[in-house]
Simulated assay, not measured.
Amino acid sequence: MEQHELRVDEIITALTTKQTTRLARHVDFPSIDREQISWLIDVAQHDTLDTEALVKAIHFAQVALRLHERVNETLRGSKERQLLVLAGDLFSSYFFEQLAGLPKEILVSLGRTIQRVNEAKCALHEMNYASTEERVLLWLTAEFGLMQGLAAITKREWLTRQGRQIIQQQAEQLDLVAQKLLLSHLEQMAVA
């Protein structure tokens, strides 16, 4: 098994351990996607930063965001809703735990990235966009802004071959016009 695959396995094992809390009996955590972790590792590579801490931090932030998104699907005041909020908060704390060992500027940068992602999610939720193009760009930020923020920190390309495949798979949730526009944007990003 090659070194990269071993690293993916090690990180997935560590991430899985965090999901085996008491909450796991009551909350359906998002599954850990091997391709996504592999993509994260590729983008997180850096000579002086802890790659594993960066990968874990981004993963924990993604899980927290996904769990908090699902809160509105539950009844107000329900135990399920309370547990989802708790689980999201727990994964947010895991995110900050990973950042604690990294330089302060990384914390600030990722904090701003999460702010941009949340703003994009709010705009999409409120349908606050003027065109399909703006909606596609908001979707790209909402879904993959954390990867873009990570790439800005590590000075690596975020739109790898594997990343493109993942984006294209997730884009299937968009309507056909938005999918075509997204593919056009991805092609333009590759040329730039």
Rank of each mutant, 00 (worst) to 15 (best):
D50L: 03
L15K: 08
H26W: 12
E35G: 07
E35K: 12
A24T: 08
R22C: 04
T20A: 05
R34F: 01
Q19I: 04
E35V: 03
I32Q: 06
D33T: 07
H46L: 01
D42F: 02
T20Q: 13
D42E: 15
L40A: 03
H26Q: 12
Q19W: 03
V43L: 04
W39V: 10
T21G: 11
W39M: 12
T16Y: 06
H26S: 12
E35N: 14
S38I: 01
K18Y: 05
D47A: 13
Q45D: 13
K18W: 02
H26G: 03
F29T: 09
S31W: 02
R25E: 14
T17R: 14
S38M: 03
Q36Y: 15
L23P: 07
T20G: 03
L49Q: 10
T48D: 14
L40Y: 07
T20Y: 04
R25N: 11
R34M: 03
V27K: 09
D28W: 00
D42I: 03
R22K: 08
W39D: 06
D28V: 09
L15D: 05
A24D: 10
V27T: 09
H26A: 13
D28Y: 03
L15G: 06
H26F: 15
A14N: 11
D28G: 06
A24N: 13
R25Q: 13
R22G: 15
T20M: 11
E52S: 08
L15M: 14
I41R: 07
S38F: 00
L49K: 09
S38E: 01
R34V: 05
A24I: 04
A24K: 08
R25Y: 02
L23I: 09
R34L: 02
D33C: 11
Q45Y: 01
D33Y: 04
K18E: 14
D28E: 14
I32A: 02
W39G: 04
L40P: 01
R25V: 05
T21V: 14
L40W: 05
D47V: 06
I41Q: 04
T17K: 13
A24P: 05
E52P: 03
D42H: 05
T48L: 11
S31G: 13
Q45S: 13
W39N: 12
